[in-house]
């Protein structure tokens, strides 16, 4: 089951570049929330702040408060523990090239020290079924390398890998931007299936995608959150002129 995310006065920097300015919003549990905006608007930085991946860059800096399920992830826990609770799917599929399909899915558990073989088998099967990849790969789970799958399959493998640790939140940073339309449709279907069980935050540059999968949408511009509301409201009756300009394609 997912948990809600509470963000208060979040600021982020890359070196001297102030990439996020005073972001405050509430992402409800067990829903899909889409973040849209032109490239460089800070939406990717924002999701990377939600699981403390932002700080893996040595020149990055964050201030403010992010509460995931009530816990302040910056002051009350460690980055490693936060990331175990929050799954992340990246823009480009990044399966571990030296590992089989099975090992890829099991990696989050194994690399954190989990050893029980039977549970691992079950988790791998469940995760691959959840990511709709099971039927395509079940015969060569341990034989085939994760890197030998097609791009769309690789991305679903990465989703399965993220789901295997049973996260409370799933962050997706433009998960379909490197994929063909058919694979994209599959990923979108998947998000639909998964959002009843997980809180999903999806960054996308594709407005139709946001409209199709998300209950709520936030519009970012120049490092600020311009508007955050129900997807329906954002796309039919935006409260801000800049949002309207963006979704009608007048810029960006």
């Amino acid at each position: 089951m997912g948990v809600s995310i509470e963000v208060n006065n979040l600021n982020a920097w890359y070196g001297t570049n102030h990439t996020l300015q005073d972001i405050t919003l509430h992402i409800p549990a067990n829903e899909a929330t889409a973040l849209i905006g032109p490239s460089g608007c800070g939406k990717s930085t924002f999701v990377r702040c939600l699981n403390r991946m932002h700080e893996t860059n040595p020149i990055a800096k964050v201030t403010g408060e992010v509460r995931v399920g009530g816990l302040d992830i910056y002051s009350e826990t460690s980055a490693v523990e936060v990331r175990r609770r929050i799954g992340m799917v990246f823009q480009r599929p990044n399966p571990f090239p030296t590992m089989s399909i099975y090992d890829n899915v099991a990696s989050g558990l194994r690399l954190n020290g989990y050893r029980n073989r039977r549970t691992l088998d079950e988790v791998v099967e469940r995760s691959l079924k959840q990511s709709a990849l099971w039927d395509e790969v079940k015969d060569e789970l341990k034989k085939k390398s994760g890197a030998s799958l097609s791009g769309g399959q690789q991305q679903r493998l990465c989703i399965a890998r993220a789901l295997a640790v049973d996260p409370e939140v799933l962050l997706m940073d433009e998960p379909a931007s490197a994929l063909d339309p058919v694979s994209t449709a599959k990923i979108e279907d998947l998000i639909f299936q998964l959002k009843s069980q997980y809180t999903i935050v999806i960054v996308t540059h594709n407005m139709q995608q946001a409209a199709r999968v998300a209950e709520r949408t936030g519009f970012f511009l120049n490092g600020r959150l311009v508007e955050f509301d129900s997807t329906h409201k954002i796309f039919t009756n935006p409260g801000d002129k800049r949002t309207e300009d963006y979704i009608t394609g007048r810029f960006g």
Partner: peptide, 29 residues
Amino acid sequence: VPHSIREAALGLGVPAWRSVLSITLRTAM
């Protein structure tokens, strides 16, 4: 070793030392 591989490991909450040894070093083995 591509940076995305390191990110994948860190994103799973794998401790840095484990990620370096089991993912980065193993990929470059």
